Amino acid sequence: MHYLAHRLFAAHDRALAAQLAHHLSLKTGEDHVFLPFCDTDEETLVADVKGRRLFELDQERLRRIRALTAIVHGPSPDDGVCMEIGYAAALGVPVLLVTTDFQDYSSTPDGPHTVFPDPLLDALATRIIRIPQLAPSAEPPATTRYAGFAARNHSQAQRAIEACVDAALQLPAPTNPITLAPVCPGTRSTTTVYAEPSPYAPPPAGVPGLAARRDITITGPTRFTSTDPLTAAHHDWTAALGSTRIVVDACGPETPPGAALLIGAARATGLPVAAYLPRSTYTHASGREPNHRNLMIQYGVDATLRRAAEVTAWTGA
């Protein structure tokens, strides 16, 4: 099954994903494509705890997919999409990222560029499909310049879809998933915690509460200051999934991309993961319980920690 990850919360995002799913299904068959929101009947689904049920339905598909395509745009990638990317990548599933964003990203004005704001996204992609330019003006010209501009954008999106479908049909088979070494009881002195800070926090960024622990080894990302961010991103991924526990700072307008990717990977592999989130903005949708984060994040973590003292306690549990 091919899983299509996309931002759910606006009609134009869902429409773009639906077009991609439609064209892919013409090549593979509808039974081989899963489109969240559409295939979970999100608008009409009734459940005791609807958000959790939607999470469970999506996770069921993630555990048996053979490929994942994600639509990723802009400087704030959707945290639910990033969680799904991390989940698939940790299981050895090929990941195709498609974007029409014309911006590159770097941590300094003259630093090395990446396609996505977090180098970890670039590093986890099996392939990146990027169509950053508007399509040429149509002939004959449109009735107004606005109609012409809309047509050029629609054509750009269509080219991205076509390129994505072609690439999806050539993706390799899944590789062996990541396996975690067993943790023996009584080895707390060797506990390693990978701490992912929020890029929205001022330097020196970190996860509050970790400095209080003296009996654990704390590691963190290197990709944001490295002269080779892609190599460093692969190192961060290996370090995180080789740790005993992961704790992420989930603060920001959305859960930061790296934090969401690691939450997905931890959920897929059974590695304990917690999110530090001292303050929430709740979202509300018809029939759904209030969510303090994207439901893929809210239900993907083992714990949401509100105070530094809770981080200290959880990392040493």
Rank of each mutant, 00 (worst) to 15 (best):
T179D: 06
L305N: 07
P75G: 12
M83V: 07
R306I: 06
T28W: 14
G252N: 01
G287S: 01
P185C: 15
A125H: 06
G206Q: 09
T222C: 14
E196P: 04
A239I: 09
A123D: 06
A268C: 09
T190Q: 10
Y87A: 01
Y146W: 10
D78G: 01
L35V: 01
A18C: 03
T40S: 15
A317L: 03
C251A: 15
P132H: 02
L121I: 10
D110G: 07
M1G: 10
T175G: 14
G300A: 04
T114W: 00
H292V: 12
A5K: 07
T100F: 08
Y282W: 13
A173Q: 09
F116R: 15
E139Y: 10
Y105T: 01
L261F: 11
T315K: 02
G270C: 04
V193G: 03
V248Y: 07
T100R: 03
P117K: 05
Q156L: 12
Y105Q: 00
A232K: 10
H292W: 04
V207Y: 00
C251L: 09
A17Q: 02
T315A: 11
N294E: 09
E43P: 03
D249L: 01
D166M: 06
T28H: 15
A17E: 02
G74Y: 01
L121F: 08
H23N: 11
P141I: 03
G252S: 00
G252M: 02
I161Q: 02
P204C: 07
R145F: 09
G300Q: 01
S189N: 11
W237Q: 02
S137Q: 13
F37R: 11
G258Y: 00
P257Y: 02
P112Y: 11
D104V: 05
A163L: 05
L16G: 09
E30R: 13
I131W: 06
L24D: 09
R53G: 06
E56Y: 05
Q298S: 13
G206I: 03
